[in-house]
């Protein structure tokens, strides 16, 4: 589904991504992990065609995303870290607006999803009056309006309680079950453990590890490999060794 080959991104003289290469299979949930400043958000934005890489290839479903972003955008749903919907509008108005922009006229599928995700009781409420968890759900739902094959989520559960996080994780698992490929960035090791099939670990713009969780233990030095959550929670520390 996604193949990155020697992707680099520079801002002026500063290298934010350095020679990143990996491949993600369709239907996989990949956790993107790393300390702050590792380049996770930049990597996700490059894959989401929101910024072009300085060099390298990004192939999504056989198309070169960097050369022709328009060709792959219909395949991508992007969920930013912030709540990127209009707070002054209702859930319904937001969905209708973003659906219009996505060229989606039939809203039945998304309304069904609202029902499943328990947003229907809040359908006519202004976003600013929703709980943090429900705002996060809407933030993800808007990215699903055009039924994308690839869902890119940049820390989509920041600032919400554990129950809401678990709820969102279960919805995302359902999406993967439906065949969607998911790239998921988070600092929450438990959440990543619950959700992901494979991991992409970054530090200072470099790819330290990419592979399934079974291989991660062999890669992480002692004592950080004693538990899986420690392996993910202390990336910054073991990567410096």
């Amino acid at each position: 589904m996604i193949t990155l080959s020697h992707v680099s991104k520079k801002y002026g003289k500063k290298t934010v991504l350095h020679d990143i290469s990996f491949s993600v299979q369709a239907g996989e949930i990949t956790g993107v992990v790393g300390p702050n400043g590792a380049g996770k958000s930049t990597l996700l934005k490059c894959i989401a065609t929101m910024m072009p890489p300085t060099s390298g290839l990004i192939i999504i479903d056989g198309s070169n995303a960097a050369a022709d972003p328009q060709a792959v955008r219909h395949l991508i749903g992007y969920v930013p870290q912030e709540i990127a919907v209009y707070q002054e509008l209702t859930v319904k108005q937001n969905i209708e607006f973003f659906a219009k922009l996505a060229g989606k006229r039939d809203l039945r599928a998304i309304q069904e999803r609202c029902e499943e995700w328990q947003l229907m009781p809040h359908y006519r409420k202004k976003v600013k009056h929703l709980s943090g968890g429900n705002q996060r759900k809407l933030n993800i739902l808007v990215a699903l309006l055009h039924d994308p094959q690839l869902l890119i989520l940049d820390e989509p559960t920041v600032g919400i309680d554990i129950a809401a996080k678990q709820e969102i994780v279960s919805y995302l698992k359902q999406l993967a079950y439906e065949g969607k490929t998911i790239l998921y960035s988070s600092h929450d090791a438990q959440e990543l453990q619950m959700l992901c099939d494979s991991y992409l670990i970054m530090k200072e713009g470099e790819l330290l590890f990419y592979g399934p969780k079974e291989r991660l233990r062999q890669h992480v030095p002692y004592p950080y490999n004693q538990s899986f959550t420690d392996s993910l929670a202390h990336v910054g520390e073991w990567a410096n060794r």
């Binding site: 989401a48 065609t49 929101m50 992007y78 930013p80 870290q81 996505a102 808007v142 990215a143």
Partner: peptide, 12 residues
Amino acid sequence: NSTITSRLFLTI
């Protein structure tokens, strides 16, 4: 400066 425009520019 918000991510709304980033989201918008994926479709328009």
